[in-house]
């Protein structure tokens, strides 16, 4: 029998820190939108960047977001974390730099692409945006081994 139990918040935070790829849900005029996303979690805030106009448009209209991340071994062994919060676009050069560094540290293979995107963004003024999410809730669920 497949049993599912809640993760305590401390466990959910550990998992959120260990992973680097999630699914960001946002809402625009009551229409949901879900996109895959690379992120970093520093224990307090979640950082992500986007190059896509649609997301920045959605997020400026409604900053409420839901980030779902998961670690799936197979259909019967998985853990999933859901973060609720508001996304805020970072504007200061220093905070953008710090956030970019965290995202790159967590997603080493993306480094060249993101570096260039952020450099391009400075040159082109607005093609990419860096956000942070301040979580208002972090919850999680996991399967437990059947006895």
């Amino acid at each position: 029998m497949l049993k599912i139990t809640n993760l305590v918040e401390a466990e959910a935070r550990v998992l959120l820190k260990a992973l680097k790829h999630g699914h960001l849900g946002c809402s625009f005029h009551d229409q949901p939108y879900v996109v895959p996303m690379h992120y970093a979690f520093d224990g307090e805030n979640i950082y992500f960047f986007t190059t896509e106009g649609m997301k920045t448009e959605y997020l400026s209209a409604n900053p409420k977001v839901c980030l779902q991340v998961e670690q799936v071994s197979d259909d019967r062994h998985w853990r999933s974390v859901i973060v609720i919060g508001e996304a805020e676009q970072l504007t200061g050069a220093e905070e953008i730099g710090r956030a970019a560094e965290l995202i790159l540290k967590n997603n080493a293979s993306l480094t060249p692409a993101i570096n260039q995107t952020i450099i391009d963004n400075k040159e082109r003024n607005g093609a990419a945006a860096v956000y942070h999410i301040r979580p208002t809730s972090i919850t999680g669920r996991q399967t437990i081994r059947h006895s």
Binding site: H23, L24, G25, C26, S27, D30, P32, Y33, V34, N62, K64, V65, C66, L67, Q68, E70, D75, W78, S80, I82, I84
Partner: peptide, 9 residues
């Protein structure tokens, strides 16, 4: 206006 994302089969 609050989004929620869940994994599903």
């Amino acid at each position: 206006n609050r989004p929620y994302v869940v994994p599903i089969h």
